[in-house]
Nucleic acid binder design. Sequence first.
DNA 1: AAACTCCCCTGATCGC
DNA 2: TGCGATCAGGGGAGTT
Length: 274
Amino acid sequence: MPELPEVEMVVRTLRPRLVGQRITKVESSGLPLRRPIELRALSRACVGARVEAVRRIGKYWLIDLSNDHVLLGHLGMTGRLLFAAARDPREPHTHAVLTLGRGVELRYVDPRRFGVLRTYTQAEAPRSPELSVLGMDPLEPGFTVDHLQAMLDDSRRDLKAFLMDQGRIAGLGNIYVCEALFHAGLSPLRRANTVGRARGKKLHAAILQVLEAGIANRGTSFSDYVDADGNQGGNQHALWVYGREGEACRNCGARIKRLTQAGRSTFYCPKCQK
DNA sequence: AAACTCCCCTGATCGC
DNA sequence: TGCGATCAGGGGAGTT
């Protein structure tokens, strides 16, 4: 499941191979993702344009084009963005293909089609339905202890739901939320506005720590994730609670528990997290 | 505001 | 061996 660190790795592997390339053709499978791929709009925006930059906001990746357009994407649950030689067979569930020069393609593969692929002008993009609702990216300088604290004090939701809310913090998903709460020693069931300053500071540090470790370990390949070169990450070996129900806590030895919050699994140590 | 429920979708897994 | 049910979960929509 691609979250912020995985999207960051995709962006970092895309950047050196994509910037400066010209897009010569766009194809689609015809099958809709979360919403239909608008092939005509996609082609109009991309064909003939050169890639100027590749960046990330939350779990979205953005490819800035030389014609003032931007290609915006989300990998959903199972999406992959992959470089491939044009002569290589396309794997199943390839839903979009950008042809670059010299027989190279950038392919969007997504079995479950929960992803997003759209184009906007640079002016439209920040006001788009995808980006306009996002809170702050936690790797932005503005994501300070004070910023987090103000949001915590303002919310009566439990910490799991609070941290999963992309409208508050953009980029955390199930894995990194569970891990951040563990490292902060906070129960996923605790209400946000009961955290207080000392614990708020720990939570802020834990969020940054798990995201930076995730990137340093090249992402968490728990199920489908690979970067744009097709390489798996290694962070799945560095998890303390996620996916470890019934196993011993690496800190205290207690059994890791699982509960369901908002229809999603939460993993936590009942002894270390209060 | 927040907490529900349902839905999108495929593939892995499990019980019979 | 096979087949249907269940689960995985990011995000959006609709309802309470």
